[in-house]
Write a protein that binds this DNA or RNA. Structure first.
Lengths: 199, 199
DNA sequence: ACCTGAACACCGTTCAAGT
DNA sequence: ACCTGAACACCGTTCAAGT
């Protein structure tokens, strides 16, 4: 739909053009179908041009993961800000946002949490850290409100995060019916609240 | 280490030979490094020979995922059988087994729960179902023992499953330090038990 | 600085042909 | 039935050269 319009690149924003073409391909075709040469073709440059901006295919994938975390972080921030001020409302909003993001962009989720950027991809992990940076504060708020026990460690937040990621993965992989999404996430939140409630 | 011994194949067990070579490559090099041609070379047949047993690369990946689920299911069965008879012991044993499997074979875990076999890979999902088939019974046992509430639905089990998968994914992807593994899984189990306890 | 074109080594997949 | 060898179209990556 946005292929051969007027080519506003050729000099300006090759990097961005490649990235957004890649996002689209990732969403619609999956990671295996993502080819540097094909992207170059779509964007209208030679196959060697992307090299200036991404040293290799993995660098492109890393960049996609990073922009994914940035987008997710932004959405989390917004949904928390838009929710009621109490802990439970904010938590539910954040979890809902994450799970929606994760199931709407399955291939991207997979890429973001992939094994690939294990070594040498510090930036990806930093981006992941930033996306979830408000989580500890949220836990604190819950403790201050008395919604969860003061003994609740920040690691309980990580466990909840893992749960949501896992639910999305099970659904994206087809191991669990998509219709169960809401029920499972609701249950996960309830379990978290009950499992960490005071006294 | 098992490359060029005496080649006991050439007729017999090409399929098995390819599969086990693939498992090794997957574990040591990752999915991207997995090439049909290279496997054929390792096993000592022409590059077109694998075609007889795997119609394409995806079929090989599916077969790897299936054998992964079979192995995981077997390990789960054994660890449950070897544990004390009470619900909590069995649950902890099963969760520990899953998490160990998942972190020792990161690339395989990723493949097993991947988006790839979404359409047309019924066998993979069946294998996944078999691997976790004892989970509902385990939940029932917990209810019978009064360890968890009678209202606990089987879906709580899925949530726990998702949690463990998620923890492994976070660690395998380097987003969480590997040293936190035990702490996180313990916390996940405790939260599950507290979140579903009776009364 | 940014891009091109040719070149290299490697894929997955297909197909006629061999045993 | 099972495997081979050649062929096709496609990669990622590199590098000298152009503007």
């Amino acid at each position: 739909m946005t292929e051969t319009e007027e080519r506003p690149y050729h000099h300006g924003s090759l990097r961005d053009a490649l990235l957004s073409a890649a996002e689209e391909t990732l969403r619609e075709q999956g990671q295996d179908e993502l080819s540097l040469r094909e992207l170059a073709r779509q964007v209208g440059v030679s196959h060697a041009a992307p090299r200036r901006h991404f040293r290799d295919r993995q660098a492109l994938l890393d960049a996609l993961a990073i922009s994914g975390f940035e987008r997710l972080g932004e959405q989390l921030r917004q949904s928390i800000a838009a929710a009621e001020d109490d802990f439970a409302s904010r938590l539910r909003a954040a979890v809902g946002t994450f799970v929606r993001f994760a199931t709407q962009d399955a291939a991207l989720l997979e890429l973001m949490f992939s094994t690939k950027h294990r070594e040498g991809a510090e930036p990806v992990r930093e981006a992941a850290g930033s996306a979830f940076e408000h989580l500890p504060q949220l836990i604190e708020q819950g403790q201050d409100e008395g919604a969860i026990a003061p003994s609740t460690s920040p690691q309980s937040g990580i466990v909840l995060l893992a749960t949501v990621q896992g639910i999305a993965t099970l659904i994206n992989g087809g191991m669990v019916e998509a219709g169960m999404l809401d029920e499972l996430t609701d249950r996960a939140v309830e379990q978290f609240l009950r499992g960490n409630r005071p006294d």
